[in-house]
Design a protein around this nucleic acid. Structure first.
Lengths: 249, 249
DNA sequence: TCAACTACGTAAACACCGTTCACTGACCAG
DNA sequence: CTGGTCAGTGAACGGTGTTTACGTAGTTGA
């Protein structure tokens, strides 16, 4: 049944175990604790053996970051499954809240994926510079955002007028990515319902959502926020309201 | 003239040199390169000698973060000096742009101060939990924000109505800090001109400014932004516009 | 079946790292 | 001058990433 040879199966098994243990070390003791020797110890091999799987510790951390993105996307996708397909507003709430809760529950992973300079964690393939924000995660997030707009008439003040000239080209490229992402899931959608102004608004929303989550994870709000959740929710409500959605719970 | 003894002067001199070299290592080669041995090598002493000045490497990094905050505040203050005292809007632009440019020019320092979990960089004095955001920096930033509102009639939609119930207590505390900070600089100001809604708006503005800067530093915008500056400026314009300021260059 | 080849894992070594310890020697107060 | 304080030292311990040479089990072709 299994096409793979014995050696290939063992290798795949070991590789999974390596990442599993590395991930555990990251979550429980932070990035600095993700040591080649510590991983090897947990897996039951010696440190140099890890070089049969990764070029360096940096390379391993990079792969780890990819895994984290994939898992986060899967988790958000799962959260989305339990929600009415037609209630896009609820979907936005679910994805954003899910992202925030995940970040707060896994600050080390959040830091690695969303708050590392390319200096300390160079991009995987230097050649291909596709969508940033860890690919998989971005897909889920942007898909919901795109779908949100697909089935909703946008308010007039979301026209392309407020968009700075210099951003038109970049936003147009992003617009194409958004449309492609949404259409990949079967929803038909063309440029007319997703004007540059809307794309710009989505970007601004990401700035606010990311900003809030990062500030909370790093404890850098200008004052002690004893209960940040309603603050996050009210921000979401305001974002959705700005796109013409009626206020909801 | 100098009250200090010879030994005390030498010690102070060495301490300055230690931080200077540590800072240089951080800026040029990143946090991981800030090694006790590397610092000692640059200063011309041995690594164990550093323990006469700091409890541990962690402690040193903490002090370094404080220095960075102080210097950033001084830099922003200096930028502010060249600007018309009555043009608060221009002051906001200056401080925000200055913050962004500094962050982009010193990503390692930005990461240390504004994107470190308390896990990897525990707060200095565990007892006193004053204003977050590195004290000094917060002062400059919040002072301008407070002053902005002091001399300007706020639009009606900045009332306290939109503020979530659960945040009233926290915001009231922050309101007092803001008023105290602004009044420290001589500007008279009382609660009436700085309602909770305005305080809330300031906090939301910080979320957006921080979010944009961090996304730019970490390269986590959902698409490649070839020219982020107009995007930042347009965000500032929108923030100021939301507070009733006329659009300006 | 057996030889040749591949590749996973090893131990040893190198140069670093943070940190501790016992110790020296310059400074300084009395 | 005497005695104490303290910046700085060298040696050491256990840790790190990484390279090297080597054994050996798995695979493959004749």
């Amino acid at each position: 049944m299994t096409e793979a040879t014995r050696r290939e199966r063992l290798r795949a098994e070991t590789e999974r175990e390596i990442r599993r243990q590395a991930r555990a070390l990251l979550v429980e003791h932070g990035r600095d604790a993700v040591t080649l020797r510590a991983i090897a110890r947990e897996v039951g091999i010696t440190a140099p053996a890890l070089y049969r799987y990764y070029d360096s510790r940096e390379d391993l951390l990079r792969r780890l970051a990819e895994d984290i993105c994939t898992d986060l996307a899967a988790k958000l996708d799962a959260d989305l499954d339990g929600i009415d397909e037609d209630d896009v507003s609820a979907q936005v709430y679910a994805v954003c809240r899910g992202f925030r809760r995940w970040a707060l529950a896994h600050p080390q992973e959040f830091t690695l994926v969303f708050a590392s300079t390319e200096d300390t964690l160079p991009p995987c393939a230097p050649g291909e510079d596709r969508g940033q924000v860890g690919d998989q995660f971005g897909r889920v997030f942007l898909e919901v955002a795109g779908r949100l707009i697909a089935g909703h008439p946008l308010p007039d003040d979301l026209g392309d007028d407020d968009v700075p000239e210099e951003l038109h080209a970049d936003l147009a490229a992003f617009q194409k990515i958004l449309l492609a992402t949404v259409n990949d899931r079967g929803v038909e959608l063309d440029e007319d319902v997703l004007p540059l102004g809307a794309v710009y608004h989505i970007t601004q929303s990401w700035v606010r959502i990311y900003g809030h989550v990062a500030l909370e994870v790093f404890g850098r709000f200008p004052f002690a926020v004893s209960n940040p959740e309603p603050m996050f929710d009210s921000m979401l409500a305001q974002i959705l309201g700005g796109m013409g959605f009626p206020p909801r719970r």
